[in-house]
């Protein structure tokens, strides 16, 4: 890749940065790169960063066909040149990369983004003081969460045990997130932007669920919740 043709992985495919120079030469080196790459490119989705290069529909169509012949799918064209963009649009190519997929986002930036919804981490042990769990999706703990432990989840937090540490559900701002525990007595409980500390325990521990109700953090006995639904 001495031609200055940089390839990097983005969420759903590969992004190739096309260098400056006469199009014929650049095209040849691009195809050569793909040929040299062998298995690496086979079946890949490729987006091209063209900067301000101006290309017509014929050039782009030719490139797409050449890549297709090598089992590479040209998927998007990025650039600032208006003629190039309209040509790409005519060919049905995307003009931006779009949102990376849920998996890719979890790996990179765990929390501050929208929720994938379905993903959950299962922690099958007791979290002791000093243990931290940060996860973009839901967190399920089978065991206790001791004082000094911390769970920060983009989604819900379910603790099959005693919850006594610090817990933050809906850390990305999801106000629908809930926290459930067999014994809900966290040092501090946060859902989205709301923070609360546990009140003094009255009576024996019972399963409870905490959630936001009209912007207020409330904890309700699981049994009540259950009955209301049954009625």
């Amino acid at each position: 890749m001495s031609s200055g043709l940089a390839v990097k992985g983005v969420g759903d495919g590969l992004l190739m940065h096309v260098p400056e120079g006469p199009w014929d030469e650049v095209l040849a080196s691009l195809l050569q790169t793909v040929d040299d790459g062998g298995e690496f490119f086979r079946g890949a989705r490729v987006a091209l960063q063209l900067d301000d290069r101006e290309l017509g529909a014929a050039d782009l169509g030719h490139l797409r066909d050449q890549l297709a012949g090598r089992e590479v799918n040209l998927w998007a064209v990025l650039g600032t040149s208006q003629p190039t963009r309209s040509a790409a649009a005519d060919l049905g190519l995307a003009l931006e990369l779009g949102r990376p997929s849920a998996q890719a986002r979890e790996a990179d930036e765990p929390i501050d983004t929208e929720l994938p919804g379905e993903h959950a981490a299962l922690v099958h042990r007791t979290l002791r003081s000093g243990n931290h769990i940060h996860y973009a999706g839901h967190v399920v703990v089978v065991g206790d969460v001791n004082p000094g432990a911390e769970i920060i989840a983009g989604g819900d937090v379910i603790v099959w045990g005693r919850l006594r540490g610090v817990v933050h559900a809906g850390a990305g701002g999801n106000e629908e997130a809930v926290v459930c525990a067999l014994d809900l007595a966290p040092t501090q409980l946060r859902i989205a932007g709301q923070i609360a500390v546990s009140p003094e325990r009255r009576g024996a521990a019972q399963p409870e669920m905490a959630r936001l109700k009209d912007g207020q953090l409330v904890a309700e006995k699981w049994i009540d919740e259950h009955r209301r639904k049954a009625d």
Partner: peptide, 12 residues
């Protein structure tokens, strides 16, 4: 007790 809990986690 809090520190002991931390230590137990590290030993584990």
């Amino acid at each position: 007790v809090r520190d002991a809990d931390r230590i137990i986690g590290l030993v584990e």
